[in-house]
Design a protein around this nucleic acid. Structure first.
Length: 480
RNA sequence: GUCCCCGUCGUCUAGAGGCCCAGGACACUGGCCUUUCAAGCCGGCGACACGGGUUCGAAUCCCGUCGGGGACACCA
């Protein structure tokens, strides 16, 4: 059942950053290839002259690299089926188009866009699919006033009441009558192929065995299928993946949804593991499993687990997944990834002994690296801003006395460890016959400026001996 | 408008005729734990769009209705 050595591809057009929908398409293709020992190909569909940019190519490669979705063939990994940029394959498209024309399966069309639009309008009004119907079919030479270079190349749709259908790996059999299809443009006058054309030529020549892409492409698979037929080629399998919808229930798009940008999430401290885990659960499942590692994804992924209903982007659940990975990944790894966020806040924490313990304490209280860095900043900074309400409640009256007692024992400590630090709180509270909270809270407010933080021993440790004592003194001074 | 796809808790989903008066996760919520906040643990709320069939029996199959989304370019 499982195809041996499938060849699959991700074929983005470089017209902006890598977006979430593309990332998921890439992920599914990647996983399928990895699971079955196949090949994952990255092909750049840069035929849109107006919108394609080298910067976008870089952005897409960067995005895939950040996600860890490495390709076997494609930019930077030239294989036997290159080149992998469509603009470098123009001769190939031209050659096949010429062949199709000579066989009467495609034709040069000299009509203006206006003429086409007008006729299409008439067809719409008469409630029938637009068909080119004629005039250019039999042309052996350009009509008066036109040149060969003016002609676009159109596919000549068979007439009659035939049907095209295929068995989608996700949706099952889908059929479309010929009468719904028109004489679509394969290639522009300047020799640039259009999507449906370039895609088929490349998929076949690159020996793609399965095309997995978003459901927005369902309708374009029919003209593509007709082309395979005309060329006498066996089409690959197709799997159309459910769409990812924005909070407004519309397809996640770059224009309307900022969260569609993969690297935006990187910048807010989402881990690639978290993003991938969230995204794979949108449209794919393996029983009730939620938190899934890369290894398990590779082991479990297949298209029979892909659902057919679109999923809504849920930033809350994304963060939950992210925290799960924050908690699961080795603390050293998280520490390393946290560094840039600390640097952005002006702190050089590399090599700081407090870093890893801090990660361990903070990852249970943070959903993103950004949150973690913000909290960690409190300890790296010099001085602290006290929250008025917290100070009023915990740095007044009896609390001040307890704080002073704690300070005396703290300075006397032989070493600054969590155990000894916690011990001080315990001793002071026992001596004064009060609950530990009576001692811990004033300390906490003095150190962090607020009433919430990790355990008091850790909090003191993170601030460091000198800084902690300074903050306590400041709090004491303030309280009178 | 035409064509295509889809329709289980608010959201992501399990479910492939009896195991389901529907299970898990997020969120929300009650409690436990506790030096705070988290984390963790225990509990609660909450859905098979609707109407017809088929069947001894339907969330699961068929038809219709309604609803949602997508595609209709010399963009991909």
């Amino acid at each position: 059942m499982a195809p041996s050595k499938p060849r699959v591809r991700f074929a983005p057009s470089p017209t902006g950053y890598l977006h979430i929908g593309g990332a998921r398409t890439a992920l599914f293709n990647y996983l399928y290839a990895r699971r079955y020992g196949g090949t994952f190909i990255l092909r750049i569909e840069d035929t849109d002259q107006e919108r394609s940019t080298p910067e976008s190519v870089k952005a897409i490669l960067d995005g895939l690299n950040w996600l860890g979705l490495d390709w076997d063939e494609g930019p930077g990994k030239e294989g036997a089926f290159g080149p992998y940029f469509q603009t470098q394959r123009l001769d190939t498209y031209r050659a096949h188009a010429d062949q199709l024309i000579s066989e009467g399966k495609a034709f040069r069309c000299y009509c203006t866009r206006e003429e086409i639009a007008a006729r299409r309008e008439v067809a719409d009004k008469e409630k029938r699919a637009y068909r080119y119907e004629g005039t250019c079919y039999e042309l052996k030479a350009p009509p008066e006033g036109k040149k060969l270079e003016d002609a676009v190349i159109r596919f000549r749709m068979p007439t009659g009441d035939g049907k095209v259908s295929y068995d989608d790996k996700v949706l099952g059999v889908i059929t479309k009558p010929y009468s719904d299809l028109d004489d679509w443009v394969m290639m522009r006058a300047d020799g640039i192929p259009l999507y449906n054309y370039g895609c088929v030529i490349d998929d076949h020549l690159m020996e793609i065995s399965l095309v997995a892409r978003g459901q927005e492409h369902i309708n374009s698979t029919f003209p593509q299928l007709m082309l395979y037929q005309a060329l006498g080629w066996t089409p690959p399998e197709f799997a159309h993946l459910p769409l990812i919808l924005g909070p407004d229930r519309e397809k996640l798009s770059k224009r309307k949804h900022p969260e569609a940008d993969v690297m935006l999430h990187a910048s807010t401290g989402i881990l690639p593991e978290g993003l991938l885990n969230f995204v794979i659960r949108l449209g794919w499942s393996h029983g009730n499993d939620e938190v899934i590692s890369r290894e398990q994804m590779v082991e479990w992924f297949d298209f029979d687990g892909v659902g057919s209903t679109s999923g809504v982007w849920d930033p809350v659940k994304l963060k939950w997944f992210n925290q799960e990975w924050l908690k699961r990944l080795p603390s050293a790894v998280i520490a390393e990834r946290l560094l840039p966020f600390l640097e952005a806040r002006g702190f050089q924490a590399r090599g700081d002994a407090r870093l890893e313990p801090m990660v361990i304490a903070l990852r249970e209280r943070s959903q993103t690296l950004e949150e973690m860095a913000n909290t960690a900043s409190i300890y790296f900074r010099t001085g602290v801003t006290l929250d008025e309400k917290a100070a009023a409640k915990h740095l007044s009256g009896d609390s001040l006395g307890l704080l002073r007692q704690a300070r005396e024992r703290l300075v006397a400590l032989p070493a600054w460890t969590v155990e000894l630090l916690d011990g001080v709180v315990k001793t002071v509270s026992e001596t004064a016959s009060v609950g530990m909270g009576k001692v811990a809270q004033p300390l906490r407010v003095a150190i962090t400026g607020n009433t919430t933080s990790p355990g008091i021993g850790e909090t003191l440790l993170f601030a460091g001996r000198d800084e902690a004592l300074r903050r306590i003194d400041a709090a004491l001074a303030r309280g009178g």
